[in-house]
Design a protein around this nucleic acid. Structure first.
Ligand SMILES: [Mn+2]
Ligand SMILES: [Mn+2]
Ligand SMILES: [Mn+2]
Ligand SMILES: [Mn+2]
Lengths: 138, 138
DNA sequence: ACCGACATGTAGCATGGGCTACATTTTAGA
DNA sequence: TCTAAAATGTAGCCCATGCTACATGTCGGT
């Protein structure tokens, strides 16, 4: 059980999940537009070297979030797909909210990428409510 | 000049500033409630060992954000005070916004601590506008 | 003035995420 | 089918942020 009464400690714990969340989400995105997801695809998408991707994929594989053979493409496990789905929903909801209140799309996209990992379910619920309320209003 | 067209790269760059922002802000907070800020105060506030604090303070000192002598307390330089002020304003505005839309205080406090480092000026402006508009409305 | 408690510093280790340089495997074209 | 280019993996480095264990400095009470 993580103790997280201290907000700084909580933020550092969130950072630990951040890479995994972004990568499984990215893998999911890639697999929607093409049949396989390879190291070079992720390297391009994340803006890092193939070496960094390889090491991170090894960790994701050890954590049973992805399946991957040497020199092969990678796929999401059940667990990985579940994390990707959750991450994507949260990312999208946050992005929709920022756009809704009037943040320019380019800024909203950048902000959402970093903020998403620190938004609690409580805040997401409120954002969802605001979006729904205002869509009913018109 | 940082290239930040890639949102993932942008987020990683934001993380680099995060520690400095949190520490100068924390030092500023502490110096408002007591005459000096010592390693043990920061260790308690950030939830890390005194060793971690010492090393980070060495870096902040090298970056001219704080003044500190061995075994002495630390103070903010002009530069550090400016960063602290900016960080605190941003933190407070984000927190106010979250509370305004109805996020429970405990969640809002935790979320703001992590989100603050990824909120652009564009988004902050929008949040400020929402707060002002709704305060006029009543 | 001394000494013990407390604060701070240092040594050394771990993990994670960057990188370049080099090795190996795959794959596609001639 | 060979072979060169592309993709991937490995070695080994950097830096940041954690930690424990141990060393040293500071300071207050007797
Ligand atoms: Mn995302
Ligand atoms: Mn992200
Ligand atoms: Mn803050
Ligand atoms: Mn923070």
């Amino acid at each position: 059980m993580p103790r997280r009464s201290n907000t700084f400690v909580k933020t550092r714990q969130d950072h630990a999940n951040e890479t995994a969340e972004d990568y499984v989400e990215a893998i999911g995105d890639i697999l929607e537009t093409q049949p396989t997801c390879r190291v070079k695809d992720l390297s391009a998408k994340m803006g890092v070297s193939h070496v960094t991707v390889t090491r991170i994929l090894q960790r994701l594989s050890a954590e049973r979030l992805i399946d991957k053979d040497p020199y092969g493409p990678c796929t999401l496990t059940r667990k990985g797909a579940a994390m990707a789905k959750r991450s994507r929903r949260r990312h999208q909801l946050l992005l929709d909210f920022l756009l809704h209140i009037g943040v320019p799309p380019t800024d909203a996209a950048r902000d959402a990428e970093g903020m998403e990992h620190h938004v609690s379910d409580a805040t997401l619920s409120v954002m969802r409510a605001v979006l729904q309320e205002d869509s009913n209003r018109r």
